[in-house]
Design a protein around this nucleic acid. Structure first.
Length: 584
RNA sequence: GCGUUCGUAGCUCAACUGGAUAGAGCGCCGCCCUCCGAAGGCGGAGGUUGUGGGUUCGACCCCCGCCGAACGCACCA
């Protein structure tokens, strides 16, 4: 079904475009009900370019607008807004259709797109820590949303399984490895030897030399080192999968950096052959082609002497490739293999320049590539002091540790509220609630701002949190448990008798309107905001309108409002990667 | 020094990308369980959106100058 917003926009286009062919039609839901249900500012935008009076333009548009069966006669308000009030019977009709719609008002896309979403990307031989949840949760949410909207999604975990760190790991594995510790916690042991070797390198040139040799042996295909390297990857992957299992995150492919090794040499050669890259100081680099304004050129940087080169290196002077080369190969592989319309890479904000350069290189190298390349970046995690987050002992918080703590705290809450529930059931609720709290806390803030890590904030169960939304859901479900018979929504028309009912219906109908923009802007936090608003609106309705005590058609309508709210909450939370319990 | 991203209530953050009276949570003060689940609801206090200019019907948002923060600036990813 088309959204009301889309229907209004379509009618508006029909009225405006014959008069102003260049007009950009925008219809938004109003923040305040006294301005109606939807509003547009096209009249003001048009008036500006046409140097006319906005209210006069608005009047002209209104006279061409066909409101039949859709809304009340249009109003001009303020400086030239046009406000739309949906007819009560139309609203009721749209809502009635929503109650049995499995897609909850989300319209199928005109053309389904293929997305490739690259997220999480942990490094081999390092435990996942809090820094990884943003990428993992954000990417997973975007994938779920794209999928539900009717697009095709490929989830790719681009793990860090290649690079200079393996010289240290191999040296450490051969000289310092504690087998028992490895058995107990492989990632912790690998991290330990890595840190020890890394420290030793600073003291001892001998160690440094051995590390280099181990790396060279690995890169040249030495059988022993290759086997150890594969073992490290295998052990790491087991740990990753455990965490992904807990988080409910899955991938379609896991193609790490090493997967692209065999293409790197040819890519560098091809870049040189096509004149995109050239040799400089022994390295192969991409320089500015001076086609962009200096300020927007990712290959230029300004210093006291003016603009100078800021090249991207695709081959180091020792002949080895680096991450730019790997990322180019990755880009090419994805484009050739899946023909995506958009590739989304979710990483932290420090890599912005890198991805800007990468996109620019790719466009010069393969100008015909049509996909949208989106770098979805997020801010860093800070401590209370505003500095990059570390625990008191200087360690990062392990993801496992965070999830354990979340479940423990939730269990204490659940036990306090429901002392009589069986232990297994309490634990399952605690798992859902604890995990939900962590994910929601991570998704709620605007992803681009740095955020301050705090246990209390991450694990808060009050206010604008997942447990609040889960609680709203649970309350609604308990209403249905009180009915004597199994209830299903009818197909009968509805009519609203209380303003709180139509307000809730409007909010529910917005689900299908906000979801596509959330994917487009890569901002799941807007979904969190929407769900919170929906829950508040529901509470308003629930205070004002008795459900079980009302009768006949009124009761039926209210049950349908409750049921649809529960379904939207459940689906919306699901799209954020959050489950709902039936009791809590 | 230059660039990127920012600076919004005591604290942590929103604000539909230029729209109408800048909204939430936490904390603080008060009220509501004989009434569909109090992990809840209702009300209150709290703001010159860092600062000074500019652009226009209209600015947290765009432009310029300051102040402050984080991150990044040629072979690490």
């Amino acid at each position: 079904m088309a959204t009301l917003q889309a229907i209004v926009a379509e009618r508006l286009s029909a009225a405006v475009l014959p008069i102003f062919p260049d007009a950009k039609i925008q219809v938004s839901a109003t923040a305040d009900a006294k301005f109606g249900d939807y509003q547009t500012n096209v009249a003001m935008t048009l008036a500006k370019t046409a140097r006319r009076n906005p209210r006069e333009v608005a009047g002209e548009i209104i006279s061409h607008f066909d409101a039949t069966g859709l809304c009340l006669p249009l109003e001009i308000a303020g400086a030239g807004f046009i406000n739309f009030r949906i007819l009560p019977e139309r609203l009721a009709q749209e809502f009635a259709a929503l109650t049995n719609d499995p897609k909850l008002g989300v319209a199928a896309p005109e053309i389904p797109h293929q997305y490739v979403i690259d997220f999480s990307s942990p490094n081999v031989a390092k435990p996942m820590h809090v820094g990884h949840i943003r990428s993992t949760i954000l990417g997973d949410a975007l994938a779920r949303i794209a999928d539900f909207l009717g697009h095709k999604v490929l989830r790719d975990n681009h793990i860090g399984d290649w690079g200079t760190q393996f010289g240290m790991l191999l040296h450490g594995w051969k000289t310092l490895l504690d087998r028992n510790a490895l058995e107990r916690d492989p990632l912790a042991e690998m991290e330990r030897i890595y840190k020890r070797v890394s420290a030793e390198c600073k003291e001892s040139p001998l160690t440094l030399d051995s590390v280099r040799q181990e790396l060279v042996r690995l890169q040249s295909g030495d059988a022993e080192n290759l086997a150890l390297w594969q073992e490290m990857i295998r052990l790491s992957q087991v740990q990753f999968d455990t965490i992904y299992g807990r988080l409910g995150v899955r991938f379609d492919v896991t193609l790490g950096e090493s997967f692209y090794n065999s293409w790197l040499r040819d890519i560098v050669a091809d870049l040189q052959a096509k004149g995109v890259a050239r040799e400089s100081e022994g390295a192969v680099c991409v320089f500015s082609d001076h086609k962009l304004p200096e300020k927007e050129d990712p290959f230029l940087i300004k210093d006291e002497n003016g603009w100078r080169d800021n090249p991207a290196i695709v081959q180091k002077s020792d002949g080895a490739s680096n991450y730019t080369t790997t990322d180019l190969a990755t880009l090419q592989y994805r484009l050739k293999t899946w023909s995506p319309d958009e590739i989304i890479v979710v990483t932290d904000g420090r890599q912005q320049q890198h991805f800007r350069q990468l996109a620019a290189i790719y466009c010069r190298w393969q100008p015909e590539a049509p996909a949208r390349l989106s770098h979805v970046w997020f801010g860093s995690i800070l401590g209370d002091d505003g500095k990059p987050f570390k625990t008191r002992s200087g360690e990062t918080v392990r993801l496992t540790e965070l999830l354990d703590e979340a479940e423990e705290r939730a269990l204490a809450q659940v036990t306090e509220k429901n002392p009589t529930l069986p232990d297994a059931e309490r634990r399952e609720i605690a798992r859902i609630v604890g995990l939900g709290a962590v994910k929601y806390a991570d998704l709620l803030p605007n992803r681009q701002s740095d955020y301050v890590f705090s246990w209390d904030k991450m694990l808060s169960f009050q206010g604008n949190t997942a447990p609040y939304l889960q609680y709203s859901y649970v309350r609604i479900r308990s209403i249905f448990r009180k009915l004597d018979a199994l209830w299903t929504a009818s197909d009968e028309p509805v009519s609203f008798t209380d303003p709180a009912e139509s307000q809730l219906a409007k909010k529910l109908l917005q689900f299908g309107e906000v979801l596509p923009t959330i994917l487009d802007d890569h901002r799941p936090n807007l979904l969190a905001n929407y769900l919170y608003e929906l829950a508040s609106t529901f509470h308003g309705f629930f205070e004002a309108c008795p459900v079980l005590k009302s009768e006949a058609a009124v009761r039926e309508t209210r049950l349908r409002l409750c049921d649809t709210t529960a379904r939207v909450l459940q689906k919306g939370l699901y799209l954020l990667g959050i489950d709902v319990p039936n009791k809590m």
